[in-house]
Design a protein around this nucleic acid. Structure first.
Lengths: 196, 196, 196, 196
DNA sequence: TATGAATGAGGCTTCATTCAT
DNA sequence: GATGAATGAAGCCTCATTCAT
């Protein structure tokens, strides 16, 4: 291992904090718990972080990094045959689950924190809404759809299912991606002829 | 007004607490703030509630009451013509928004609280999932749908849209109900022939 | 006693804090000591003061009040016969000792505190320097005297002697006033004819 | 340079500490600041000093050294003509300012420190008071003067003016020496015939 | 029905100091 | 001769809770 001892300690603190924040929320997580779980003393915490809020923000920065990969998700679906569109979109959902599911803790934390959740959620929602509006212009997405509502919905669903099924490993990204794609694409009900 | 002074004080505390819990979260809301906004002293708080957790639980009971009305939501869609099914389900979503939107604060609080959110969410999800499974048996809901995932999704979307659009009064229950019904029923994409 | 219990507690805390600040300095005085000496718990401290700095500032306000009385000290010595001038000035010094000596603790504290000492000292020095400049214009104070240096000196001496002899009750205001008047007025040495 | 690296480091630490102690006071100066300004680590500090108090004491020893030169200041003024006495004493004050002004930082620190200021101040005051008593026996210093009060006053004035005017380089030792000599020797007021 | 006054427990943070390398 | 990493002790402050009136 080429990491120094100090880097290792900081890494450990970040990791433990992430778990605890996700499990109990920011406020309810005490620094004393974090350091106890990391096998350090409270003073050591302040070697690496200026404050409790600081470790939180450092975690968010990591998360923000990961969100960059979202920008490509579902970019354009034009020029694809209907069949391809579906598999394309399904794939897009799988990607979404994969990106957020890669760090379910951070997803949960980031979207819960009073001060930051709005900013972060907006960032994700915006990307999806914009992609969707694009595809709406090409006639792929229905005109009647309010893309912001749809984007909010997609994010809400993803967030929830990540917490509910990925964190617990009850389902895989693929399973969830397919189910969600199905719901949002073809709907839930049978035999509904277009136009009703 | 036939309410005694004591009842009035308790009511006021509950109301103020609800607003603050919704705005700032349970942990970040101080009893000192609640009583200050209610025009009382801290000691008075303890005339009506055993603890901070207690006032929270009393609020949840109120919420649980309201959730009873959910039990009928979307009970059975059999015997309806496809067209009716759609309007029926749309209506069902509007009801869902109405019930949860009637007390957006409580919705937010209840589904956020670390200890209780699971229980409450489960209660709601369960009802919806069961109704859905029923309708699945009658061939109304697609076989491929995992009704629990779908129910979780519906609740997540509703919860989010209530917070995002009802709390701010940017949209009405009807608008949201229709959009959501549309998304979940007919999907988002155009021209998808059944079977792909 | 018409004071409420709360007022009494606050008064006690102020009094104890004053003694400790004077004895050990601001930084070295711990809130735990203040409350221990006042027979209260640490939490009680915060019923009356927002912070350690706050109790300090409230003490300074009291002191500032007392300094108002200084403004008259040594205002004008014109129109007095030389003999009267001397007794007038002696009296002025006695007043100075009396005002500062009335609250020797506050004098010490105020003139020690890093952030405030300059401001407060300046306030006192300014008054004295101005009075002196006035009397210089009337030919009472020697032309060669730099009134700011003289004022600083007078304050320094007073401050020191208050700490050294009044706090310990080794000397009275009158004794000190006379000695100081003598030193500054006629000097220390014998037989120095004017002009040497 | 014949100094070893270790000696150099120690010297640097002493110098930085002196500046910081003078600027911010003993308590408010953190070891972390000292070493940061000296370009060393905290652990290095303890190679040269047993504790924070230790570096302080070592600084005081240096100061004590310098105070030896004070012993001659104003030793005897006998056998001098009145005119000579004045210039002699003036000179004496200049020396006092020079000795203390040579290390204004140390002067400030030493006379501020809770535990040591009494001891050090006493040492200086004592020398001056003794010299003065001597000169009083020879009829040079007025009988009415309480030499201890006078000595305390002289030290207080010197201390203050060093801080106020020498540290800031607003005045020179000579200017201050003359002004102070004037004040204490001939007084501040004009035309006061001896005996009033 | 309410308040004024107080408290215990615990949280976050700082800082002088140590020790293995 | 110096550093990186860590710690123990203590300080300030907050907050839910209690109790006498």
């Amino acid at each position: 291992m080429s990491r120094t001892k100090g880097e290792e300690s900081k890494r450990k603190l970040l990791q433990v904090a992430e778990e605890l924040f996700a499990k109990k929320g920011y406020q309810s997580t005490k620094i004393s718990e974090i350091v106890a779980n990391a096998g350090l003393t409270q003073a050591a915490f302040y070697l690496y972080f200026k404050s409790k809020e600081d470790i939180f923000q450092q975690m968010l920065e990591d998360f923000d990094q990961q969100l960059i990969y979202l920008s490509d998700v579902g970019k354009k679906a034009v020029e694809l045959s209907p069949k391809d569109v579906k598999s394309y979109v399904t794939n897009m959902f799988i990607q979404l689950f994969t990106v957020l599911g890669k760090n379910p803790n951070l997803t949960k934390i980031a979207l819960q924190h009073a001060t930051d959740s709005d900013r972060i959620r907006k960032k994700i929602v915006e990307q999806i809404a914009n992609n969707m509006s694009n595809n709406q212009r090409f006639g792929i997405v229905k005109e009647e759809i309010d893309t912001w509502i749809a984007a909010e919905s997609i994010v809400a669903v993803t967030e929830r299912l990540v917490n509910r099924y990925l964190l617990t490993r009850e389902k895989t990204e693929e399973e969830l991606g397919e189910q969600v794609a199905q719901m949002f694409l073809s709907g839930i009900l049978n035999h509904l002829k277009s136009g009703d």
